[in-house]
Design a protein around this nucleic acid. Structure first.
Lengths: 249, 249
DNA sequence: ATAATTATCGTCATATTGACAATAAATGGC
DNA sequence: GCCATTTATTGTCAATATGACGATAATTAT
């Protein structure tokens, strides 16, 4: 019995990862410098071809490990969106599935290494066009940042940028960096601590910083950064994002 | 000069469309009956292989036209998520990019046709497992419905289920069908008409129905159902979804 | 010790929501 | 034509959430 339908076209499929972190008070993205054509010398998102028998998240995790030199997945990874296959790679039709990683700052393969170099770059500068990005990676980055910004409104994912235990001020610094705002510390404290199922007091206090020590919190179990918890809202009503700062001090 | 890296693996790529509409007071999904293996006889989302030189939305539009027999894209179409390539097709690794269509009720190729038949099925019944769905289409449908539900909270996309001009009650019926709620007509009216940039009064009135005639609205230009408008919130603060009805009258 | 810094609690005006009363304007039955 | 019924629309009111900011607490820096 011959179920005859034409042989389907096949496409190379890549995964790209927009890895975001907060450091030095700003949102940063992980970029690598391309050592091969096309776009040799340009910067690009880490990523690469999906292998037979792989799932998408699996492939994204592997590429992140290979290109940034990270041992374990350091944060929260989710699929962002797919792009292509038409008109995004000079070599031909290539479909890419972009992913979003939100993570605390982690060390990457230092620039200057002979093989490949990965580094953190301020998102603001990259989006402003200060670096030349390969393929459609500028568009992907832009979509990823918008996704991250809106995720902070209604999900507990701001905490994905923090270490397992963190202060309210550290969490607020994440919001301020991602949203480019200066949220009111008192109102933010009220919202963060007053939202059921969001934070859990560890009982411990921060030490060593200037000023009064702050209580250390962790994510409440219900809010743990898993796909299940973040699909639905935890911040309800959401923490709405004010207009971004207009760019002066 | 030989930039030698291994030839990348290639995968068949499909697009699937979760087409949703509201009719008979309930959310309905467009399903076709599979006439070929695998899953011959099962129901499935309309979809098919991406062709060389196609973009994803383009391919989804084409498949919708081919399998449901619709001439023009009847509503709002956006990408949902990608699935695979591992472990979702018995024939091997196939990547699928699922799409979401929100549309007013439109006629499809009638069941009983010899070639293929498409029809609307109540989402509630399909998700309850009353039909056997091919591949991972049950999971895709579930994700799509959740996406649609959350879109109604902060975007004007409820109107994508309506004809170009509609009453507040028709829009509310959409919300009630998608969310499985019975929103208060008075509060809904206040929110819908009171949200700047959402609705625009046509000046016309509905006729022929029981009860007092209702004013006819259309989407405000700012809120028109395009990707640009719906990426950002129009309903701000959002219209939060109450708990769904528990299942009695 | 004192100043500076940061955390945390409180206050108050304003905006939004949810519940529901009341009125307006049509249809349908007689 | 008259009245009950239905649906649309306006309004009221208490509860809740937000934004702006005062005040106090508990550290480090000098």
């Amino acid at each position: 019995m011959n179920t005859s339908y034409p042989e389907p076209a096949r496409f190379p499929v890549t995964v790209d990862v927009v890895a975001l972190t907060v450091s030095a008070g700003a949102l940063q993205v992980l970029l690598i410098t391309r050592l091969i054509e096309p776009f040799k010398g340009s910067m690009a998102l880490p990523g690469g071809f999906v292998l037979p028998g792989e799932g998408l998240i699996e492939a994204a995790t592997r590429e992140l490990a290979e290109e940034a030199g990270v041992a374990e997945q350091p944060g929260y990874l989710e699929q962002l969106q797919s792009y292509g296959p038409k008109g995004r790679d000079p070599r031909g039709d290539v479909l890419t599935v972009a992913h979003l990683l939100l993570a605390p700052n982690f060390p990457v393969i230092a620039a200057g290494s002979d093989a490949a170099s990965a580094g953190w770059y301020p998102v603001k500068d990259v989006l402003a066009g200060e670096y030349s990005l390969a393929f459609d990676h500028a568009e992907i980055l832009s979509d990823a940042v918008e996704r991250a910004r809106s995720k902070l409104e209604y999900s507990p994912l701001g905490a994905a940028f923090c270490t397992p235990e963190f202060t309210i001020a550290q969490l607020r610094a994440v919001y301020d960096a991602v949203w480019d705002t200066k949220l009111d510390p008192r109102n933010f404290h009220r919202k963060a601590t007053g939202t059921p199922g969001f934070l859990e007091d560890t009982g411990k206090m921060s030490t060593g910083e200037a000023g009064r020590p702050a209580a250390l919190f962790r994510l409440a179990p219900q809010a743990h950064t898993t796909r299940a918890a973040c699909a639905h809202a935890v911040l309800n009503p959401p923490l709405m994002r004010p207009a971004a700062l207009t760019g002066q001090d």
